[in-house]
Design a protein around this nucleic acid. Structure first.
Lengths: 329, 329
DNA sequence: GCGAGCCACAACCATTGGTTGGGCACTCCT
DNA sequence: AGGAGTGCCCAACCAATGGTTGTGGCTCGC
């Protein structure tokens, strides 16, 4: 009785013919538009009907008319045809969809991009992950045009090639993520100094990366115990550990989309006064950027600011002075 | 420079293989799952890559790995495969998607169904139009199972076969639709008696249909001039006429999705005290209704009521007494 | 260094998906 | 009423597609 998914081979070209024939009501006209013979279209549609085991058209003396099944099928067929168009556009060299690299599909970067896409659903936007930690690889990918932009940061702008630039994207505020047994679990809000003496575990940070530098400065400036060493065994392990522990906490981006089982009962606690924020940057080509990128950048600029005061690592404040200076020239 | 839609033939079976191979990272495993040889999958994917003119995988000694293009393409491929599943499910006899007949795709009925789908996007729901005015055809279609339910009304419940029943769906309030030059154009709200002496034109009503009866009773009860005769040349003609006329108005359902050019400047004016409402019914099989239908009916029951008092045609009030009585037995 | 595992290439073949040609059903016009 | 016109389906045919088997090259681990 269960309708397991039958593997019906469906030819997208047949769907295209079906859609056109349904719209025109004539196989002949559809055939002309598609550059083939009327018999060809007839056979295609007959094959479709055979595969689906339903009649899609009633044949009349002056054309074809959709049956009920055909009516029900048509919007699905349209959506598939459109999906194929989009899929092809996504990889078509030269004029392909806007492609942006993010660190992870659950990261704040991806969430912001998803928000952008929801408010501009007409954009063909593809979010990919390079799966490399070295930002220079991302820079190279932007330079060659494999990707249109990347949410990475190079702390030393001198390493950027002439044709690549980096602009501030948005500042991602951090929250403390703790299990129910942690002493800070019931706090509604925390200041950085209140995190002192508590062990903060942020696994998976590559030594020498900009994230390592970020947590380094953070630990120094507020005298925190941040343990950013050790391998990362996946979010599940991290979340499991947090849920069971009464003394380990971690820092996550406020917009990061972490998902944990309801039994874990983890809590996210905003940190303010100052708000701790990681300054996300966007690396993009200086010349001939993808046309869709402009609007994404504009969207990033329109994002709401953070509760003042905001703490940022030193390289961010330095670069922004430079950025503003170069803009004011 | 414009990227017109290249007609790249895309084989859905190849997409299926690609998705599976990308998930498993092994052509061999994907081939086993799909019940074919490794070489077959290899050829399918090679064909895809040839058609798209991009490499989707990098081949390594221990499997395949997505390229950037592959990553960008994967979600699209998934969506197409899922679309095919849904499309097949929409017409698969026996266990097909929930199929409901409405009078028109812009009608209040369709709008309500669309709202339902937006809040329950997991339902496979197909909205079709039988394109016949005779409600008995709809009843027959429900009886044979061609459709799962129909938003029609039979004023005489005796004509229903034993296995088909009719339940109240929701009451659709009417609004006056007038052009800018009409004397009532600036009213914020109207009562039925204020419509007296004004010419109301409702084209396309079939004589003898329940709609004819409705407008008949309406005209009698409030002494209105309702002209329900004459053919309907399409909504565009109706809207054009209204926009230009200073003495013709029409009645439309408050939820009907009429679309007119902005230059027309038509106004919709609610009618209250009493609210005029058309009682929509749902015709559905008494035994073995489609499993998804239950939730749609529940949703209909949860719709907000209308501003009291409400005027309904006599048959509705009669049937509801009967309906309530039979329920209380 | 060699076997195991994985993918690509080549040769082969059934099936598919298109073509042309012909026929039947219905409509419309005279 | 009959014939021209239109529209779709069926049959025969044929190239190209999409699968198979067999083989070879590559990388990794022992």
């Amino acid at each position: 009785m269960v309708g397991h998914s039958y593997d019906v081979p469906v030819d997208t070209e047949a769907l295209r013919s079906f859609v056109r024939a349904a719209e025109l009501g004539r196989l002949r006209q559809a055939a002309d538009e598609l550059g083939m013979t009327q018999q060809g279209v007839s056979k295609r549609i007959a094959a479709l009907e055979r595969a689906l085991e339903v009649r899609l058209f009633t044949r009349t003396a002056r054309g074809v008319e959709l049956t009920l099944d055909g009516q029900a099928f048509l919007p699905h067929a349209r959506s598939i045809v459109a999906g194929v168009e989009r899929a092809v556009a996504a990889v078509r060299p030269g004029s392909r969809a806007l492609r942006i690299d993010v660190l992870g599909l659950r990261s704040a970067q991806a969430v912001v991009l998803h928000d952008y896409w929801r408010s501009h659903p007409e954009t063909d936007l593809d979010v990919v992950t390079l799966r490399v930690s070295d930002p220079r690889v991302a820079v190279a990918a932007v330079e060659t045009g494999d990707i249109d932009a990347s949410f990475r940061t190079v702390t030393d702008p001198a390493v950027l090639p002439a044709d690549v630039r980096m602009i501030p994207a948005f500042d991602s505020p951090l929250e403390l993520l703790v299990g129910p047994g942690h002493p800070l679990a019931s706090a509604r809000r925390l200041t950085p100094t209140e995190l002192r003496k508590h062990r903060i575990w942020v696994p998976g940070i590559e030594p020498g990366s900009e994230w390592a530098e970020f947590y380094d400065q953070l630990a120094t400036d507020f005298d925190l115990r941040i343990d950013a060493a050790g391998p990362h065994f996946g979010d599940e392990v991290l979340l499991d550990t947090l849920a069971d522990s009464s003394d380990v906490a971690t820092l996550v981006g406020a917009r990061d989309r972490y998902i944990w089982p309801p039994t874990h009962d983890l809590r996210r606690i905003p940190v303010e006064n100052p708000t701790l924020a990681y300054p996300l940057s966007l690396i993009l080509p200086r010349t001939n950027p993808h046309p869709g990128l402009r609007r994404v950048v504009a969207h990033l600029g329109s994002l709401a600011g953070l509760p003042e005061p905001v703490w940022l690592p030193s390289w961010a404040t330095e670069q922004r002075r430079g950025h503003t200076a170069s803009r004011s020239r």
